[in-house]
């Protein structure tokens, strides 16, 4: 297994992870992760199922506690923050869940209003409506505004999930398997949406995936996660032209990206 390749970027690091460890009982999931995300950058974390990709972003978002190591977001160490400080910091992050995680009992409008009215209580009805319609327009799903999550397709749920995070205008986006379980055409739409979000909202993003097409379309930099470590870190070409066995395995088995 190759060792970490130091990656240098002159831009400000919005996320810095040093020597991160996480286990669940006997199962060591993260085994000394070092990673940085710089301002305006899209980093794809590529790894097999169960390699700890989702655990990594859940630790960054403060949903899980690390066993050891330092995770800093905007120069604030996540595990040292109290609940209120963490909630305040979370407003600067957006988290798009694998399933969309839309609230079943609420329609699309209420789903999008939910974080907005709770975090900006002084907003008037018209401002809330305008904000909801704006983000729905940005993800191209304005027509679904009164539909329930159960009436939406998998791809639509993911896009509404992204819209719900965009309504708070985050500076960092986490995408957990954005193209998992959806058809190739919708995958392309989601990949384009991720790029659009980066440009329009000026976000820095960590994209968790095992889909090379998604990685190739959205990436500024790739980090390969295997056996709890980042085994390769660099641009798409650097990573896939290297001799790293994990990168080679991904490339060889992904027919579409190879083509």
């Amino acid at each position: 297994m190759s060792t970490d390749i130091p990656y240098t970027n002159t831009k400000e690091a919005v996320i810095a992870i040093k020597n991160l460890y996480k286990s669940f009982d006997e199962n060591k999931v993260l085994n000394g992760i070092d990673l940085e995300l710089h301002k305006g950058e899209n980093v794809v974390v590529l790894g097999r199922s169960g390699s700890g990709k989702s655990v990594l972003i859940k630790i960054i978002a403060g949903l899980l506690k690390p066993d050891k190591g330092i995770v800093s977001v905007f120069q604030e160490q996540i595990d040292l923050l109290n609940f209120k400080e963490l909630q305040k910091l979370r407003l600067r992050m957006g988290f798009s869940f694998q399933s969309g995680a839309l609230y079943d009992g609420m329609n699309v409008r209420e789903n999008l209003e939910f974080p907005l009215v709770r975090n900006q209580r002084k907003l008037g009805r018209k401002q809330v409506n305008d904000a909801v319609e704006q983000v729905l327009h940005d993800v191209g799903l304005l027509q679904t505004i009164n539909q329930l999550p159960s009436e939406l397709s998998g791809g639509q749920k993911k896009r509404i999930g992204i819209a719900r995070t965009l309504i708070l205008k985050p500076e960092i986006m986490f995408y957990d398997e954005p193209t998992g379980g959806i058809d190739p055409i919708t995958c392309v739409e989601i990949n384009n949406l991720i790029n659009k979000v980066q440009q329009q909202y000026n976000t820095s993003s960590i994209i968790i995936t095992h889909d090379l097409t998604c990685a190739k379309t959205t990436v500024d930099r790739i980090a390969i996660l295997s056996e709890g470590k980042i085994t390769k870190n660099g641009s798409f070409d650097e990573v896939f032209e290297s001799e790293d066995p994990n990168a080679k395995a991904f490339y060889n088995y992904n027919f579409i990206a190879k083509k």
Binding site: F83, Q87, K88, R90, A101, G161
Partner: peptide, 9 residues
């Protein structure tokens, strides 16, 4: 978790 990361308790 989605509620938690959106700054809601």
């Amino acid at each position: 978790e989605a509620m938690e990361v959106s700054g809601t308790n």
